[in-house]
Design a protein around this nucleic acid. Sequence first.
DNA 1: AAAAAGCGTTGATTTAGATCAATGCTTTTT
DNA 2: AAAAAGCATTGATCTAAATCAACGCTTTTT
Lengths: 193, 193
Amino acid sequence: MYEVYFENFNQKVPLTDSEQAQIKSFLSVKKLRKKQYLLQEGDVCKSIAFVEKGILRAYAINETGTEHIIQFALEGWTVSDLYSFLTGEQATYNIDALENAELVLISKTAHEELLQQVPKYETYIRLQMTNAYIALQKRLASTVSLSLEERYKIFTATYPDLIQRVPQHMIASYMGLTPETLSRIRRRITENK
Amino acid sequence: MYEVYFENFNQKVPLTDSEQAQIKSFLSVKKLRKKQYLLQEGDVCKSIAFVEKGILRAYAINETGTEHIIQFALEGWTVSDLYSFLTGEQATYNIDALENAELVLISKTAHEELLQQVPKYETYIRLQMTNAYIALQKRLASTVSLSLEERYKIFTATYPDLIQRVPQHMIASYMGLTPETLSRIRRRITENK
DNA sequence: AAAAAGCGTTGATTTAGATCAATGCTTTTT
DNA sequence: AAAAAGCATTGATCTAAATCAACGCTTTTT
């Protein structure tokens, strides 16, 4: 149940068996069926979810009722409304499952206890946050300075799994485009080569 | 010279005098004149800069030669090409001073030593990365789901200092707009109230 | 097994923002 | 003190992407 989580953890910060057992005692697991919510806008985000299996997505809904996908999370990734999790404010987005999923959950109290008690947990979180920040920064930089063709090419190269497993109109939403526009971009790409 | 840095640090993680002295021994200061570079595309980013005074900006230049501002950093903020800093790869953007600036620099070795030797430094970095990630996520969410009017209003409310101290066409660049468009948005806002 | 919903594509039209161009004003350079 | 560069604004035009609409195809629901 915790295989992917600890594989990921050990890769970033190697753990002894006893440390691993200690950390495990703070975690719980959850299964989510396709289309089920992990979090709904307005709720307080009670835990960070690590994806063992499946795909989740975080999305916001604007005034006009349009969904905008903020983030995908597949195996080995983490998802939450971090701001809500840390502050206790209401979440501003929704998180649900695009495939049946298995999650490792870290509750707020577990997170805080682990930070206190297990120095390597803090290191793990630091590295995770750093990577997440860098990834987001790259995404932002590509949004602002590349053509749509380029952005889509980079996206497919970076996340080939998502292209396989997520419907195209959700990729469009993630990129801030309409499905029609993405369809046309794909055509332009295939035609020019 | 280190007042703002330690004020910021203590606010996140309170330090004893001796811890503070220990940390200080790893830091250095640097003054930068307006328009001087801290980092140029292609260089390796050798240090993280904490802004004591002044404003810096990070920006990328695309194929067609257009500048795109990725980030501003004013007093209390930190700036670097983090990816380059951590991996030793060439930087993909430029950082320069918009006003004469005073910086606290943390070199790569200093950073690594501090992470090893001073647990509170790791906590500080963890919190800093977390905040940076959340801020970036909010920025991205607002890009994707709000109107330009809304985004500009939020920007002015969030960073009133920047509006005062940074030319408008740079704000436009940061928002991914042309100066003309931002000018028209501002007019629309003032007319409708 | 039939009906409904979801998905990707294509075409026609509209529109928001970019681009091109010019002007007045302020700041910097010489 | 004069010249040049930088800046914000406005107007006219162009264009890339959104919107509106329709169609076949597949998957899900009933």
